[in-house]
């Protein structure tokens, strides 16, 4: 397939660009495009669920986080130039060249070894899943069947990881306790037009997010992807109106409650007498909804933590420049 080859080449080029470009912002943009190409590429491999997840979470949200996080910390262009001329830098360039040769050699050996030895001895798991997932779980999408039923034990930790990651971020970025952060962040919206148009957009995004969540067991998508789409509503709203519009502490509490709900709900799977065929489908939908809400809360908190941090950094900077 020539299309896939074009995509793959573009991915390699973008990956090289994102590590070789000097300015971090531009590197991050390349990384975002790289993820987007990946997301489209997964479609060729019949992985629509994954494609959606990579597009929403890996490409859009990660890039936004990167950009917000490094804003204000990156070097000025003049600084970069002066660093590049120093003799130390030349030594570093020599080091890069040396390691480049080493990596090329070892990489070549490893890759040729891989293609020389790789073999298949069957796919027992695949065989079981595709034959029985509809009768086992009631889902029409095998991916949902796996992560909400067969391997729900993994999904619990996935949700936990998101919870812990958010706790860590909020903790490291020093959310001021007991303070109402809304006032500190609130500034004037950048543009009236953006504010108006995004106002028109919310209902559609919300609707789309809910659709993805509720139909996760039938069509590509599910709680994680839909939750991320819902979270984008908060983010767009922030960019349009420059205020959070929701109390972050309530959001944090909600996230933890949803997480407990997910654990409790997944425990129902252990009671076979509960899980008749009607309840199974209901269970899947309910799980997806809970996960969706939890992910939505979590990602929104994540984003606002970084935004808040950024305004704080700019504040102190502005003050020191004035003073």
């Amino acid at each position: 397939m020539p299309v896939t080859i074009v995509f793959l080449l573009a991915m390699v080029v973008l990956a090289v660009a994102s590590i070789q470009v000097r300015k971090a912002e531009i590197a991050v943009i390349y990384l975002g495009i790289f993820s987007l190409f990946n997301a489209i590429f997964y479609l060729f491999y019949s992985a629509p669920d994954l494609s959606l997840a990579e597009a929403v979470i890996g490409s859009a949200l990660a890039t936004a986080l990167f950009l917000v996080a490094i804003k204000g910390y990156t070097l000025r262009r003049t600084q970069i130039k002066s660093e590049y001329r120093s003799p130390k830098m030349r030594l570093a360039l020599f080091g890069e060249l040396f390691w480049g040769v080493v990596f090329l050699t070892i990489g070549f050996i490893v890759i040729s070894f891989y293609f020389g030895t790789v073999q298949d001895v069957g796919k027992p798991a695949w065989y079981h899943y595709v034959r029985s997932f509809i009768s086992d779980t009631g889902a029409r999408n095998a991916v949902t069947a796996i992560y909400l039923n067969y391997r729900v034990f993994d999904t619990l930790f996935e949700a936990l990881l998101l919870l812990v990651g958010i706790l860590a971020t909020a903790y490291f970025l020093e959310w001021p306790e007991g303070k109402e952060p809304e006032e500190e962040i609130a500034t004037k919206p950048d543009s009236e037009i953006v504010a108006r148009i995004s106002g028109l957009l919310y209902p559609f995004i919300l609707l789309y997010g809910f659709y993805i969540i509720v139909n996760g067991h039938l069509t590509p998508g599910g709680g994680f992807q839909g939750g991320a789409i819902l979270a984008s509503v908060f983010i767009i709203r922030y960019f349009a109106q420059r205020r959070l519009g929701i109390n972050i502490f309530i959001l944090q509490r909600l996230e933890k409650s949803f997480f407990l709900g997910i654990i409790a709900l997944s425990m129902l799977l252990l009671l076979p007498e509960f899980m008749n065929s009607d309840f199974k489908v209901f269970h899947l939908v309910l799980m997806n909804i809970l996960i969706g809400f939890k992910v939505c809360c979590g990602l929104a908190i994540l984003f606002f933590c970084f935004i808040f941090q950024q305004t704080k950094v700019e504040d102190t900077k502005g003050r020191s420049e004035r003073g």
């Binding site: 997840a53 979470i57 990660a62 993994d154 996935e158 998101l162 990651g165 860590a168």
Partner: peptide, 14 residues
């Protein structure tokens, strides 16, 4: 890999 993507975003954020 959906799990891996969610892991990726959380660890990147941290």
């Amino acid at each position: 890999m959906i799990t891996a993507i969610v892991i990726g975003i959380s660890s990147t954020a941290v």
